[in-house]
Amino acid sequence: MTTHTDPHPTRRLILQGAASVALLGLGNLPFAPALAAANDKYPEEAFKLKNEADAIKALFGKTAEPSDKVKLDAPEIAENGGVVPIAVATTLDKVSSISLFVAENPNALAASYKIPDGTMPAVANRLKMAKTSTVTAIVEADGKLYSATKEVKVTVGGCGG
């Protein structure tokens, strides 16, 4: 690897940051599969289901209740349906997972994160959306499910006044 002076300190910082994260990840590697195997296995079936209600049932075996403690940050109208920025955070205690569903996508379950104990319960993702749909975030906390839903419009665009 050659070295040179990076004219962009911000970028260098970000790159250094990314490197340390990667190293940490490597350091944890021996434990990670064991942990995952102990708690959960990859929810293959839930990811394959088309319908949102079916996917929620397959993933959790129960339904969620809407909660204002789940904060779902999504645009009203997507600037690019191919990469829609979505973020979820919650003030709930004992969070064990956060999952995202796009009702109108070919497969409704878009992502499911396991949240280890002591982790700040906040995730962000980019979702691919073919058309206008509700996006639902489900937070699993203390064995119960809490949700927040928002409609994200994917439009053909044009015709602003």
Partner: peptide, 25 residues
Amino acid sequence: KDVLEDICDNLFNADPYYQQGGDMV
């Protein structure tokens, strides 16, 4: 028809945050 529906929703979505403020194509 889909284009007309899409643009019409920019005007008449019941939630103003989903409106873009132009008129119908």
